[in-house]
Design a binder for these strands. Structure first.
Lengths: 180, 180
DNA sequence: ACCACCATGTAACAGGTTACATGATTAA
DNA sequence: TTAATCATGTAACCTGTTACATGGTGGT
């Protein structure tokens, strides 16, 4: 009966459970709060919202404004809640990362070790920045939001540890170029 | 001069540096060895290879076989190597994870804690399985392959740590439903 | 004078998945 | 006899990005 929805559909419907919002509002929220793990682009949002209405998961109404552009406010429907619920209950698919850096490393023989080290350093410094940002964040609204922050932290720490080790290992190749 | 190539292009060209191969061969290698971090689908591979030829990054030749289907063997060209090199040297983009589980957790208020716990447990058990598989692996061919394995391990450990903590935290909600 | 915010969208493209289609050979 | 291996591809879809387009209001 209830057709399947995508993760992006679910993200938007999920935000709509907090009340009627415009595409603009949704984009704002999704790119700031919690937008660490799901941030569809503006154009995607504006494309998806009408689809949600078509499929009966949301309704929209026009709001005429003066002094600023008119807008559309979206509201989740009962059937939207049902579909969202079904999506939330599906067991999550969790796949290992597919990051370009790994491919670059895997093909590392084709690169100067110095370049690889730069790559790894970049990863490390970005992971560090993320870690700091997450640590600096106020203790978070809900327990659940907190858990997602925790995820980002664990991930960042893992990346830092990994990058640190990787750099050393590559550097040791530099010291002894033709080990034998 | 050298146009940009995608990560998938690079993956295939990278494998082709080990010698002439068919689409079938490439798929095999990419899904087994190191296919942890880049595994294009069969249909994608067969779509990309002719494009590589068109763009001058590879050449192909027909091999007629008896007893088994004929095949096309692909060989990387000099210009292919140049393009690959350029891609490898580009600083890597490393973005934090975008996993559905996080979205489900973020919207956790909409789910029974029991369901969330099941979700988290699933993640944990899959991360554990990955960890074991990686630990069981023979010490790996090259240093670089080793480093990518190390990445998978750090990642898996981080996921296990996180899931363990998350489960406890959600469970503590169960004990005291309306904490106050 | 300039920039950010509000607000919505279109068009072109890139990247990727699933399912379907075919068919001989060989090992269990 | 059943399944895996070898081998290549098409068709239909879905998801997503970048760049372009518009234009008033309000703050520095």
């Amino acid at each position: 009966m209830t057709a399947k929805i995508s993760a992006t559909d679910a993200a938007l419907l999920g935000l709509l459970t907090h009340g009627e919002q415009s595409g603009y509002d949704l984009q704002r929220t999704s790119e700031t709060s919690g937008g660490f793990f799901w941030a569809p682009t503006k154009s995607r949002i504006y494309a998806v919202l009408p689809q949600l209405v078509e499929r009966g998961y949301a309704t929209s109404r026009d709001v005429v404004q003066t002094g600023r552009p008119n807008k559309q406010l979206y509201r989740i429907t009962r059937s939207g809640r049902t579909a969202l619920q079904a999506w939330l209950e599906e067991p999550p698919v969790f796949e290992p990362e597919r990051a370009p850096i790994l491919l670059k490393l895997y093909l590392g023989e084709l690169l100067e070790p110095e370049v690889l080290i730069e790559h790894v350093r970049k990863v490390r410094s970005e992971a560090l920045a993320l870690k700091r940002r997450l640590e600096a964040q106020p203790p978070a609204e809900s327990t659940y939001a907190e858990i997602t922050v925790r995820h980002g932290l664990e991930w960042a720490r893992a990346m830092i540890r990994w990058a640190t080790g990787a750099e050393q290992e590559i550097a040791s190749k530099l010291g002894a170029p033709t080990a034998r």
